[in-house]
Design a protein around this nucleic acid. Structure first.
Lengths: 229, 229
DNA sequence: TAAAAATGTTGTTTTATAACAATGTTTTTA
DNA sequence: TAAAAACATTGTTATAAAACAACATTTTTA
């Protein structure tokens, strides 16, 4: 179930998103008509193969972007943070989602008609450049993920995932936004093996670990593990 | 060693590429100054991390696009066919190549200053749409490759690679443009195992195989193998 | 708040595939 | 065209990680 909160408006929103700023600059505020939708934990925000009708801005909360693989096993592509957009691939030729997004925590989203965003993209070169760059970065990340998931082994993959999450939260101390199994989806290994590797890292004094709380004690060591094997 | 053929000009070129057509439409023919460079088999056409200075159109021949992974093992992203472009990622925010391209056969390329192509992109919406779409498709392919290489096993991966090549050559009968080891790079398995799987497929009457010549006798069976495992 | 479901943990077994080795064949190079 | 290098093939061994199992703990749901 989703909650539609019609009270929230852009001017009251503390997240100054590029879409709003660009729309304002282009005098398209009237047409914006943003809809604020709240998703509960575990709820699907968008589904693979579904049509992209809106650009979705994650205003509050965390979500996971994943593709559903074989035998019900997912591969998590990324963890979404407040400020991230969903659905902008529509601008790059695909009318359908190529991935799923589901809420890891309650997620507040702001949704705008994708047609309007497309128009903005085509008529505002700064906005265009921003989206192009973001898309290019996504592509580069995909590329390195392809190598990592294929050629690295468990310890390296988990180390990489931990560093990725630390970088998202801009801190070496964080609360894991995912379960062990999901950390496995992000690292392309089983949940059981995630537990094992995490225990090893703890044993070796590389991380401190208690339930979901992680402190990376030796970031350089973890970095080395993530690079080599 | 590369051969620069200054004699070839766009008007004489039988490959009517989008860049030339768009430049003509925009009266930018004078500025185009295309350079025709020929690469020998095995030569590097572009290298990871190098600056992108030109848009490279593969006019004739085949090339492989790959990222260099760990322990000297590559992952092949795609096989390039005549008409394919290299370096357009520069438009999407990255000034450096994120991949390598090397010649599988002698490769004739036509190279145009990337700055000009960028200008064309920003001032021609049709051209823009084409490049965006191409980039989007590349992204989608990456995504499905991520799943395939991670979750499928040898037989499925090799089946997929064979179908991919058949689709490139638009025929179920083709001469492999790659070695067994390279087919391994494309499938993320070892060369030895490629040989084994190909032998199995031959034994099972799914393909006909002699040296580099492949005939897919039972495309549907191969398709099923590629999907399941 | 009791019951059910999901998550976390550790140990054991199985399995797919890499790694290694040995040899024949083709292609490239000097 | 002879020698060297790269490629293809088959068999064997080693290994990383999945699969399975059993149970403790936490979270969700009725």
């Amino acid at each position: 179930m989703r909650l539609i909160d019609k009270e929230k408006h852009c001017l009251a929103c503390n997240s100054t998103c590029d879409i709003f700023l660009t729309a304002k600059e282009m005098n398209l505020e009237q047409e914006l008509n943003p809809v604020h939708i709240v998703y509960k934990k575990h709820e699907i925000i968008c589904r693979e193969h579904a049509s992209i009708t809106h650009s979705i801005n994650l205003v509050e909360g965390n979500a996971k972007m994943f593709v559903s693989g074989l035998h019900g096993k997912n591969i998590m592509l990324s963890i979404l943070m407040p400020g991230n957009y969903i659905g902008l691939t529509a601008i790059f030729g695909s009318a359908k989602y190529a991935y799923n997004v589901s809420a890891l925590t309650p997620c507040h989203t702001c949704q705008v008609n994708i047609g309007l965003v497309k128009r903005m993209y085509h008529n505002n070169s700064l906005f265009q450049e921003k989206l192009n760059k973001a898309f290019g970065i996504t592509m580069a990340n995909m590329m390195s993920k392809l190598v990592s998931l294929n050629q690295k082994q468990m310890r390296a993959k988990v180390a990489e995932s931990l560093l990725y999450i630390a970088q998202l939260f801009e801190s070496n101390r964080f609360v894991l936004p995912v379960t062990r199994k999901e950390l496995g989806e992000l690292s392309a290994i089983t949940g059981e093996n995630v537990v094992r590797v995490l225990s090893e890292f703890k044993q070796e004094g590389i991380i401190q670990l208690e339930a979901k709380e992680v402190i990376i004690l030796q970031p350089e060591v973890l970095k080395n593990i993530s690079l080599a094997g």
